[in-house]
Design a protein around this nucleic acid. Sequence first.
DNA 1: TCTGGGGTCCTAGGACCC
DNA 2: TCTGGGGTCCTAGGACCC
Length: 411
Amino acid sequence: MSTSPVRRIAHLDMDAFFASVELLRYPQLKGLPVVIGGGRRQEDDALRQTYGQDLSQIPVAAFPLLKDYVGRGVITTATYAARQFGVGSAMGLMKAAKLCPQAILLPVDFEEIRRYSKQFKAIASDIVPQMEDRGVDEIYLDFTDVPGGQREGGRVLARLIQKAVLDATGLTCSVGVAPNKLVAKMASEFNKPNGISIVHQGDVPAMVWPLPCRKINGIGPKASEKLTGLGIHTIGELAASDPQWLIAHFGKAYGAWMYEAAHGRDDRPVVTESEPVSMSRETTFDRDLHAVHDRAELGAVFTRLCEQVAADLQRKGYVGRTIGVKLRYDDFKIATRDTSLAQPTADAARIRQAAGQSLKRAPLDKRLRLLGVRVGALSKLGESSDKNTAPAQSTPSQAATFLEAKTGWLF
DNA sequence: TCTGGGGTCCTAGGACCC
DNA sequence: TCTGGGGTCCTAGGACCC
């Protein structure tokens, strides 16, 4: 039996990424409460037009404030100065405005974000080729086989990467290094911002067990609330509980996983390549729409979403067989319906047709807050996976049928 | 005046086939 | 006539993550 070396896995997390990218453009806002979120607004465009190239000359007083915002939307990122006031990611902008009205509000500039995202990943993977992409501002790196990757538990390499990223982008990041992804992910939060945290397996009781269960990546609001109800608050309490008891409450797979996670055990590899499973576009309306009353508007949005997702597929070279719709009602409940096609497609009209079939089967009597279109069961264009199975012509549900006469335009 | 947009994975029931 | 399975695909919902 060969003994495998101890793994050293790093999790790198960009600090307040969206906000930090904006601060590069507007250094005059450094240290101030700034919030990124909401849609594109005319004020933002107007401001940039007025000052042209010299964005750093815009006086602080000229920036739009959170308190003047009207409409829907959430915070994508808040600067650390803004977080002092209790605002943070995923919080509704209207609620945030009450906590920190004087915060400056900037829209998300996706193009710029993608540019910096590619840049920091290129730099990191140049140093550590085993990189797993975990979204726009996070990566895992496998230090195990990198020369010097074990020195000081990974601290030397982590420092090197931090410096390379900062030199190239002007942005800081935090890094956690641990025996596995699960613990590395938690560790990257220990020293934010611009920090490094090294955790060995033996450190788990002291460094991880005092934390609330919610800090485990994979235990969300539902599971942590249920755990609280069962008297389990910390990861240490979770680790000390009976695994059979956990399985009884959370099911075989999830219960057993929770127990392992609480002990800091995780053997998932760092995955350097993956194929997308689905692509989607969705939009939340400025006001809730009704299938009958707002049919023209809804129909136009529906077609546009299909065109956008078709364009995404074509640009990336994918086709898909499962066409789905997603509806969020005014009560925030979600319904999804999907339709499988005989042949995969990336064609807007075919997607629109199949999405219409799907939409027919969803309840349309309540007001809609959101509409989405998704294409799944993807394959790369030209590499048809030869799954020549495909029946599935849908029939409208009883509930939807009576509305059909009035909403036929949608399909 | 709460609560975006883009994803992944899991579960569970029914259809259908062997 | 009745009794069993297993395997795969499809659909819907839900938890979770960034």
